[in-house]
């Protein structure tokens, strides 16, 4: 197990996510997880990154029309970003609240829409930010450091 990737080149992975492409969302989390396992990262880091990717990509598939998921691995951290063209988030504070969801019935039927995605992403990341414009789209950025103060061990 390693704490940093001094000897590994930086890696960027990209996954386009289409509207209602729920499968790709889960698939991207699953593929990144395998890559991180091959790099020999700690299980806890891998779990947190995979959860963030799953939730972030799923939000694009459910709440936006289409977008791009980018995962960047550098020697100190893993950055996860989603950029989508979508409805945007009118009230970020409300969206961050546990249990708040505007997921349509179709998504609820598949087990989404608990309103726990954003709180979960916040919990798993060292840094999380949302940049959103109503009617235009949303950019979400999350970062997980290999050595973190908030998630020791």
């Amino acid at each position: 197990m390693v704490d940093s990737l001094q000897y590994t080149p930086q890696i960027t992975l990209e996954f386009p996510i289409g509207e209602k492409d729920f499968f790709m969302a889960g698939e991207s989390a699953s593929r990144v997880k395998k890559t991180l396992q091959q790099l020999g990262l700690k299980q806890d880091i891998i779990r947190r990154v995979a959860i963030i990717i799953y939730e972030a990509a799923m939000n694009v598939a459910i709440h936006a029309s289409h977008g791009l998921l980018t995962v960047h691995i550098d020697p100190e951290s893993i950055s996860i970003q989603t950029d989508d063209k979508g409805v945007g988030i009118p009230d970020i504070e409300l969206a961050m609240r546990e249990g708040y969801s505007t997921a349509p019935y179709e998504a609820q039927e598949m087990g989404f829409g608990a309103g726990m995605g954003l709180p979960n992403m916040k919990q798993c990341s060292d840094e999380l930010s949302l940049d959103t414009k109503v009617g235009k789209g949303t950019t979400l950025k999350a970062k997980v450091y290999f050595i973190s103060k908030e998630h020791p061990g």
Binding site: F23, A29, K33, A50, Y54
Partner: peptide, 17 residues
């Protein structure tokens, strides 16, 4: 343990070990 039988459950189980 779940009554959901879609592909997302499998992804979730796999991601969460």
């Amino acid at each position: 343990i779940t009554s959901l039988i879609n592909a997302h459950v499998i992804h979730t189980a796999q991601v969460m070990d």
